[in-house]
Write a protein that binds this DNA or RNA. Structure first.
Lengths: 279, 279
DNA sequence: GGGATCGATACCTGTGAGGTATCGATCCCC
DNA sequence: GGGGATCGATACCTCACAGGTATCGATCCC
């Protein structure tokens, strides 16, 4: 199986429309139809059910969509990591969510920079749930993830830090007078719903609560008295002055882990991970 | 990057010889040379240093060898899993080392077969260190691995069972009179060296001790008074009558884990894993 | 029933993958 | 030190196939 065929199939399987998929791939529709037919013939497997009005995935087709995405990520990772390895000073790319782990990350970068064998660390901030993808397709070498929110499936990890969570509320809110609260106190505050975050494909779940993409938006909404939030206590160091926080006793603990692709063999990465575990 | 290019490069990087690599790939040498040149040109990276007498990998070349193997495994896995998913009764392929986990595996298969939603489980036995590869390239869906010997890098796992290890000796050996021994008692027995196992590419480390490939060979050697071994205590159930065992107090504990590719979504696999954890 | 939508088919073209023959550099050895 | 062996690169040819355009045929909608 050629990666070109996989790219074509994934495009069709995602669009469920040959015309749009062809456009996305920058080719005409007929060669795309033929390529998919040929793939089906070579595999001896029906991947798509097509009528002239709708295209749907077969069972085998969904398997190939999932496996094909992973394979294409791996091919892309091979490409990117090879190019990067050839640069004079390869460095490392570390990715983490914007607005999280700031304190820990600063300490890690400082400690690592003190290592005589240290290489430059390029810090990339990305959206929610995007870190896994970046590790997988070679855009990043290492990530700081937050359990239980992020998935560490398929990566090697070391736990770095565990912390409790705080309820973030507009300054002056009545709950702030208590020494601590419970999740139940926060989940159904009148007029202050918890926000909704996009999932890894950028789609929001249905339900109440304002949609947010980053902490800046979130803080703004809380300050406006339109939302509340439960966040790891490390956010306290960079909390806006018009917000305040109170510990939530029964919120799940948040664990920060450092994660990297399991077959990595880079000296620099190993040193960075070692530094992280010694923090 | 096309998977054909990756296959070609991996062949050359493994053989370090264009002629042999071409033969292995079933093509002539000149197109192979050109394909590699084109890959280097497209990447803008030198992958190989060639003189007319020797071919060696550059730094970037070894990165591409490692990443390329992983990517090719992923592509092959996509192919195989898609074909299997299209079969009328897909079933599951479970792989484990020959001669290990017999007891546990039998219990697992029995318990799973009692599940009304159970599918057929095809048990594959393979050589040392081959399980990871089979999981990665789609020949298997799930494996029983043994820590600390096997690597679980890149897989999801659940621990099933932990056991101590025994020294396996020819019947009548003087150590057998003791209630237990220590590693130091076993590592330097005169005339009874511990055997050497091949690593994942089939190469034996240098040093003393007979080379063995499987437990049948090993047991034979021990019975002949040419070797001793330290094995998990579950081997007692199928020990030959001309061998005997004594617990080794300070040997590392052996943990049997069930492992599967992290992006698996199969109902059948989930049920099997659930059954395993409830044993 | 006419038009719009959409995948499949027919047919053409050019790129490039793969083949053979040969070159040029290096090493080996008598 | 020169002849032969080894091995990757180059030159040149051919044909398969990726990709294009035009069009068909089925389905849905008004």
């Amino acid at each position: 199986m050629e990666s070109r065929e996989l790219r074509y199939f994934v495009a069709v399987a995602e669009e469920l429309h040959f015309g749009r998929a062809a456009e996305r791939l920058g080719i005409a529709q007929p060669p795309l139809s033929r390529a998919i037919q040929q793939l089906e013939r070579r595999l001896g497997v029906d991947l798509l059910e097509r009528t002239s009005r709708a295209v749907t995935l077969t069972e085998a087709g969904s398997v190939l969509l999932r496996e094909g995405r992973a394979a294409l990520d791996a091919v892309e990772a091979a490409d990117r990591r090879t190019r990067r390895a050839a640069k004079p000073h390869p460095g490392l790319v570390l990715v983490t969510k914007a607005g999280s782990a700031g304190e820990l990350l600063a300490r890690l970068l400082d400690a690592y920079a003190a290592d005589p064998s240290a290489v430059t660390v390029d810090v990339q901030l990305c959206g929610v749930g995007e870190q896994e993808r970046m590790l997988r397709d070679g855009r990043a070498d290492v990530a700081l993830l937050h359990l239980p929110f992020d998935s560490t499936l398929g990566f090697d990890t070391e736990e770095l830090h565990t912390e409790n969570q705080l309820a973030i509320l507009p300054r002056g809110h009545e709950l702030l007078s208590r020494p601590h609260v419970k999740m139940a106190d926060v989940t159904d505050l009148p007029g202050l719903p918890l926000p909704r975050w996009p999932d890894r494909v950028g789609v929001y779940t249905d339900g109440p609560g304002p949609k947010v993409r980053d902490t800046a938006q979130l803080y703004q909404l809380i300050a406006l008295g339109r939302a509340a939030a439960v966040l790891p206590e490390s956010c306290r160091t960079h909390l806006r002055s018009d917000l305040a926080a109170v510990p939530v006793l029964d919120a799940p603990k948040v664990t920060t882990v450092i994660a990297w692709p399991p077959h990595s063999r880079s000296q620099a990465l190993a040193a960075l991970v070692r530094t992280a575990t010694l923090l």
